[in-house]
Design a protein around this nucleic acid. Sequence first.
DNA 1: TATGGTTATGTTTTTAAAAGCATAACGCTT
DNA 2: AAGCGTTATGCTTTTAAAAACATAACCATA
Lengths: 115, 115
Amino acid sequence: MLLYKARFKIWLENLEGKRVFGDGLKELLEKIDSFGSISRAAEEMQMSYRQAWGKIREAEKRLNTQLLCSQVGGESGGGTVLTEEARILVTRYNKFRSEVEEAVERLFKKNLLAK
Amino acid sequence: MLLYKARFKIWLENLEGKRVFGDGLKELLEKIDSFGSISRAAEEMQMSYRQAWGKIREAEKRLNTQLLCSQVGGESGGGTVLTEEARILVTRYNKFRSEVEEAVERLFKKNLLAK
DNA sequence: TATGGTTATGTTTTTAAAAGCATAACGCTT
DNA sequence: AAGCGTTATGCTTTTAAAAACATAACCATA
């Protein structure tokens, strides 16, 4: 029996049990933060602007919190920055995620690798 | 910002990075074990026999390990029991899963609930 | 020898999710 | 005033996963 690795996926839910945040959105927000643009971030993640925008909007609704602050038109055509709340969420989620990763790895080795 | 709960999903992979085991298969095997029948177990899980059988076969291929021992025809029409390896896998996976659950809950509270 | 409950497997259909297409508006810059 | 790079949003199409359908074979029992 060839078990090689345990994998996991985590996400956050609101009171109604709906997904509000996960790895995809986290990466998207991080890229928006570094490029100052939704479209650049989406491109970088090989997803369409349409999809990126839709996911963010849905999350904002479900969190009942604004994550982005956008500007249309202007010198570079426009742009987007993260709200302070979005920044805090990303930071805390990153810590949460890495600690879960560590735990999963440890528990996999402990319980499932040949004894 | 209304964060209520962290959820997770775990699974095991083989060397090729293909899923070989997870919650669905675990439950299926447990039910086969208690009923002695794939079809009864599938019904119980509200899935078709076809699907249940297919998932198990695929897992056996990927694990390169026999999980079931079946008999066709006979007094009750036939039946299926788990191999010893399947039983060990289920037991260990259950422990692994419950410990991961505990860790996720703890880390969520630690990192994401309002400070 | 017909029946019931099972395993076993190929094929088709349905459904849900993802991707893609189309269009509009905004406001600098040239 | 035309163009460029954005944000913003509705609608359609494609794709992949799940479900459903269809058959065959096995063998104890009645």
